[in-house]
């Protein structure tokens, strides 16, 4: 048995499957099921495809009900529980804010630009009946970008586990689900991106099982003076969050790790209390560059 790293491109980033096999051909064949699953999720929930289920739901906003398949309905239910457990901060209807925030032009939108978009946000107003969904106002949008990547990582890892693999992990641009430790039972050493040094690592975390996901202010942003405007928006104010540079969370599933790190970003200063309450291990860097991890306030 040997460790193979199989890189691939998906979700506009570099991803990899790491697994153990007897030879490269077997490793490639095994990894392909995981890669296919990532591509399937990416394709199915793409915002850019006009025939996707997400586009159909959004096009029907203010009009007819749309019947979803089981997977989409389950993702909506998951989104609902995130909304409930984050006091409404994690809202999959907040994507409309992208229309106001253009990261290439680096302009802070005016109150007048934001106001009509903020009026379109509100998951609690979305109507759902069994597998049917209806967005009440024309112009409203949902998207699963907030946890789609982590969901794909879980699905890909489940596909590998289904083939009997016990060692390895799926890494989708830093969000990863671990199948199990290295063949010698040692944990994998997972590097955490330094939020201020592009391509640099700020820490290496040993992980043997479960999942690790990171949210940060460094993925898409622009700066005006000292102020950094990142792509994580408060759905009530329409403004980017500022308290955390990055939040990494360890959880049994990638989708939970990713959701907790995003909610912590959204909760700003209360993010730490949220992570403590959720009971997950975490490593966070605040806006001053200080490190925080589980239980450190107790010392």
């Amino acid at each position: 048995m040997q460790i193979f790293r199989i890189p691939f491109e998906a979700m506009a980033s570099t991803c990899e499957v790491v697994l153990c096999a007897d030879d490269e051909g077997t490793a490639q064949a095994l990894a392909q099921t995981a890669i296919d699953e990532v591509k399937r999720v990416e394709h199915k929930y793409s915002r850019y495809r006009t025939d996707s289920i997400v586009s159909r739901i959004n096009r029907a906003a203010g009009g007819e009900w749309v019947e979803c398949d089981e997977e989409t309905a389950a993702l909506c239910t998951y989104a609902d529980s995130l909304f409930q457990n984050s006091s409404g901060l994690f809202d999959i209807t907040s994507g409309v804010l992208r229309q106001a925030w253009d990261f290439r032009r680096a302009v802070v939108p005016s109150e007048e630009t934001l106001a009509p978009l903020l009026a379109l946000i509100g998951w609690h107003r979305v109507e759902r009946r069994d597998r049917n969904i209806r967005l009440p106002d024309a112009g409203m949008e949902i998207d699963f970008g907030g946890f789609g990547k982590e969901y794909a990582a879980d699905r890909a890892a489940d596909a590998l586990a289904g083939q009997g693999l016990k060692h390895g992990y799926v890494n989708l641009a830093g969000d990863m689900r671990i199948l199990g430790p290295k063949p010698d039972d040692q944990p994998w050493m997972i590097g955490i991106q330094d939020p201020r040094r592009h391509g640099g690592l700020m820490a290496t975390i040993p992980v043997a099982s479960g999942a690790l996901a990171t949210s940060g202010d460094y993925e898409r942003f622009f700066e005006i003076g000292e102020r950094r405007y990142c792509h994580v928006f408060n759905p009530r104010t329409g403004q980017p969050v500022t308290h955390w540079r990055s939040v990494s969370v360890l959880a049994p599933r990638a989708i939970v790790a990713g959701s907790c790190s995003t909610i912590a970003m959204l909760k700003q200063a209360e993010g730490k209390a949220f992570l403590e309450e959720a009971g997950m291990d975490y490593l966070a860097v605040d806006h001053q560059g200080n490190f925080h991890q589980r239980g450190d306030d107790a010392h």
Binding site: A278, G279, R294
Partner: peptide, 18 residues
Amino acid sequence: MQLKTDATTPASQSALGL
């Protein structure tokens, strides 16, 4: 680092995590 390497269970049980 004092994070536990096995993340298949949360670091502690809580209603929110659950």
